[in-house]
Write a protein that binds this DNA or RNA. Sequence first.
DNA 1: TACCTCACG
DNA 2: ACGTACGTGAGGTAT
Length: 863
Amino acid sequence: MGPKRLVIIDGYALLYRAFFATRYLSTSDGRPTNALFGFTAMLFQLLEKVEPHAMVVALDAPGKTFRHDDYAEYKGTRKPTADELKVQLNDARDLIAALGIPAIEVKGFEADDVVGTISRMGEENGYETTIVTGDLDSLQLVDEMVSVMAPKTGVTETVIYTPADVVARYGFGPEFIADFKALKGDTSDNIPGVPGIGDKGAAELITAFGTIESMIEKFEELPAKYQKKIAGNQDQMRKSKWLATIVRDVPLEYDFAVYKLTEDQLTAAVSMLEKLEFRGLVKKAPSVLGRYLGEGRTTEPAVEVIEEALAPTEGSCADYESLLSALSAGPYSVFFAAPPIRDDLFQEEIRLAYVGQGKNVFEVPELAARELLQARPADAILHDAKPTYRFQPAGAPAPGFDTQIAAFVLRSERSNYALRDLVQGYLEVSAPTTPFQLANGLFLLKETLTDRLERESQATVFEGIELPLVPILADMERLGIAADRGQFREFSGQLQTEIAVVQARVHKAAGREFTIGSPKQLGEVLFDEMKLPGAQKTKTGYATGVEVLADLAAEYPIVADVLSWRELTKLKSTYADALERLVRPDGRIHTTYHQTGAATGRLSSNDPNLQNIPIRTELGRSIRKAFHAAEGFRLASLDYSQIELRVLAHLCEEPALVRAFNDREDVHTVTARAMFHENDVTKEQRRMAKMLNYAVLYGVSEFGLAQQLGAGFSVSEARALITQYNERFPSVKEFTNSIIAEARSKGFTTTLRGRRRHFPDIHAARINDRKAAERQAMNAPIQGTAADMLKLAMIHCTEVLRGSSTRMLLNVHDELVFEVPIGGEDIIPKLQRTMEHALELNVPTEVDAKIGHDWNEMTPLTS
DNA sequence: TACCTCACG
DNA sequence: ACGTACGTGAGGTAT
């Protein structure tokens, strides 16, 4: 059990090592076999000890590699391979094939690069990977999910390197191995390095300065003796690093097929070992290879695991008291057979729950399980705890574990977090079917997920941000926000009247009745029948979005009417009518937050979505007006000003941006001044600068920017603006480039608080998919850091509000809405300060506060 | 169910 | 040659 395991063997590196490490051996007819023996012995050891689910051998392709293209002397010092080894290399291919292990080689790349690529793919697919090699260059690939196994003295004695082992041996982590070689050089690969710098000097420099790039940047700070050595050798050093860096995006296909053997393969492999006269290995073969017969490692447990791992003893308890006496101290899981229904906010019904502890699972009345949760929350393991918490009194402490949240933190791009699937996937068992098995699986998942969170450095995000947020969100959902049904109803009526008028005008102008809401019909009316200019085709017909229609509205009244019809019907159906229905008997609207909905770490809100209540148009704000404070209270809205740009400034450290925020200047104006080299910039210039700033956040494309800038802007003008921006703010471009490079090599990006987002598509075959992944990657740390900040702010604000009658109602990404008792407004500056310091940046964060009776009419609060 | 359109940050 | 900014949720029509 535990995670799936992958073994990647660097074939020739291991054979090479085995050749020198194993005493000379030969068959009775004189064929040398020592390298093969060492190789096979190690393989057997692996199969026994690691029990991999998937296995692959990487080989060097014959011919030159891309490294030779740039550096002809690469590996120029290598002596030709000894003949005794050469013959064994050929036999090795046959042996590997006989054992049914896939072998991959890619022309132009070395086996190391193949290893790097597959280990990265394995990581993306959730494999715990062991790289088996005789060559320590691979240490640069080590991380939480990837370890390197290398022969120690002989072949059967091995040493395993985890990140901590690399640090222990070298004094720095795996990420600096390439820098180490860049300084020290490597005679076997003919990598020059920096003359005069060896092990000690290289280690010293890396510990003090990190990468060679930062050494070059901080050249003046280097000790004088190293300055001299490096001075004339910078290019050589850079080149050496390039040579030493393993490529992790080699174009190759590998399907992680489960390693398995047929009876025939086993027979063939054994007869091959017999021919090689490896009598000891032949004897061991049935027990070592036998377990991979048939369906291989992963399916072997399929039947058994349900019987063993997920085979709870099924008990039952009639009430809380008997449940308590049946349980021992420590963690317990609770699985609710029927999750609470959202609509039944205040309703309690007799349902069943399943409480699991180790092998024991008890069927109990839901009420008993709830009592247990309230008595011992810290031990509780739940899946999607929030709906359960909605029924509990406010202010409850967080549960001990939430498997849905943990799975989200690990892989936020998932769309399905069903308990069944997590149990199946993470515990590698066939799908649980009974509630007893689910409670049992839930209990077991905690171990596995905790381990994974730890390995992937996500424990802090889980424990420090996501888990504490669960009860806070439950409290906000339970409380809801007051809203005026009558106002929605009345507004809906007004809209209906207006819609009828506009609709009639549209039909009259068109000369016939048609469904305005049908883009297909609308397109035909406007572009076929009325022959309006500017028709754009989409896959299914004409494009009729605002971008297209807005240009025509001034000249064609029918188009203006269509746009107005759209606004009116949108407001009526999506907002006025829908919200009216959702005002609960307590006079409030209760949204549901999705903590696992957005891959960046943001929250999402649904049923209804209170994060997209209109604000941009006067008419739309009538909707917002219906959200109001309870009797005796006022609403306070506290929002971060330009939070994502501040995060960007922090992350890329662009001096011009940092200075603008430090000086509390308008950042778009500052941007415009810099771009256009003028002190007084026009409104239009500021508008363009603003768009550029946002373009950066989203991953700019020339075409996209031109579209956004509006009519009259060509792609080449947009390109020119981007060039100007990049010239003026070079650190921004460097930052986005480095993020993409990181996403490529590691497979994920990281926010300021360590939250990761994975990008499987960053190596997609289709360029468009790849480009899209790159844009997502450069946006993720920015949006994600802002999300971290908001979530931390919510946690800290909850502490500030403990014991107060002010309460937090809503999260709208960069805004928090509170309900403050009249007379208790002095809490607002405290909340403001709390938000401003939730996550410190190297630029100030500003939070603006507004207060009012409803969500529309709010007056700024200066403090 | 897919697609379009549009509301928000 | 192709499609076009990041992240969402929701309602409508047409299939």
